[in-house]
Each structure stands twice: as C-alpha cells, then as structure tokens.
Amino acid sequence: MYETTYHRASSVDEAVSLLGKAEDGKFLAGGMTLIATMKQRLAAPSDLVDLRHIDAMKGISVNGRSVRIGAGTCHYDVASSAELRAVCPALCDLASHIGDPHVRHMGTIGGSVANNDPAADYPSAVLALNMTVITNKREIAADDFFKGLFETALEEDEIITAFSFEAPEKAAYAKFANPASRYAMAGVFVAKNGGDVRVAVTGAGSDGVFRHAGMEQALASHWSADAVAGIHVDAEDMLSDLHGTSEYRAHLVKVMAKRAVAAAG
C-alpha cells in the first residue's frame, strides 16, 4: 500500500471539511473494498476520511412500512435486524449472503452502493425497492443514481447518509454466487407493490445494475415464475469474462428471476 494519511471524522460536516483539505482524499467506511484495493495498489488516496465513527449514519428505523437505513450500517446489522425482517425480509437475506461474517461485520450498505461494483448485491435492492439515496446535499431517486460500472451520481465530496423506502408487499432476491468470491454472477431482486413491479439485475449487465422492462411488464400482468420464463434476456447486454460467457449470464438472469418470484410467493 502507498502512503496515506488517516483522519477520523465524528460528524458528516467534519468529514466533508477534512476531505476538502486533502489533496486527493477518499471517504473510508468499512474498507472492505477500499483498503483491499489500496493493498493491491489499485487506489492510492493521499488521505482517508473515516466515516465509521459517525453515529448519525448508523442504524435502522422502521415506521409502519417506511424504512430508513443509515449508510454506515454494516451488512451484519442489516441481516440481523428483526424490525427490518418483519417488513422486508428480502433485504436481510441479501445482506446475509454478502461475502463472509468478517466482511459483514465491517462492510456497509453506503460503501457498497457508492462503489457500485457491477457484481455487488445491494445496488439491485436499491433499484428494485425504489430507494431514495439521501446524501449530505440532496435526495437522489434510485433510477437517477447508478451511472454504469463503478459510476454513480455522487459528487467527489458527497456522502450518502441514509437510504429510505416503502417496504413492498412482496420481494425477494436470488443470486447465483461466484463460487470463489461470492459476488453475484447474476442476482435478481424482484419487488411487487400492487400493480407496480420492479425487477433489478446485478452481476450480469455489461453496464452494471439495470432494470428489466420486459420482466416487469410480464410480472405486472401475471405474478408467477412462469411469466418470466418466456421473456427474452439479450446476451448482447451481458458481461462476459472468465467466470461466464454473456449467453450463460443471460440464462442465469432468467433462472434467478424465476427463483426470486417463487421465493417472494
């Protein structure tokens, strides 16, 4: 790892001001992506501004079906929240299958979403649950947030502070995990609220997480695993790498979508 200077912020404002003074600084949350990347010398920020001790960014609150999750909440706390499980078990299940227990104790929902790795799990939930991404500057709708591989609408000095959404009637996430890394080779998050259906696909798309309009329409008119079976998933839009060809991923997307709908009930 190249040299860096560490700063610990105790509030969002302090974090922004510390980053403003740095030459080429970065926010640090759980570090499960950033420190790992710095170890490989693929990132070399001059300064790190640690957000992990900002209490206002942590915790889950559920009010009726309105959910708010602090961006600094770690995967383990999302996975094990009884309050959240009561209204949206799909999100707890998603979090419980990220990496391993040690990664889940450190990694945060904010870090995962800000990073927007094309194989990460959370971006699919943000999109399918139509979350509002709350930052220190504004509120961003899920549909306006993701901008392609590792790209988001966030500005350099913008911090995600929380996510909010209305828990849908039905939701589930199904992922085909890469057997080595456990990241998604294809992950599909489905959510249904009355006639409104959202289907978000991660791990597979060549442009990162995306919604599949064909599946959404099919499921809106008929909510069943059979309804997605006949929908075409275009291999042209899929990633292709040593883990799987684009045709393989296109097939996986359909299988995961069927499993997710079946699991959502």
């Binding site: 420190i35 170890k39 383990y76 227990p101 104790h105 450190m106």
Partner: peptide
Amino acid sequence: CDTTQCGVCVVHMDGKSVKSCTILAAQAN
C-alpha cells in the same frame, strides 16, 4: 493472502470477528 479471502488473520474487534489484514491499525485505534 493479499485478497481478504483466507481468514487466517481473524481477530475480534470490539467483540466482533474481523479480518485484521484489511483494517488499518489507525482505524482500530
């Protein structure tokens, strides 16, 4: 390992298991 995958470095930090190879000492201060 160099990739946060093997887990031989696991310690408990404030009571929870973590991979000490992917946390700065300064973070743990």
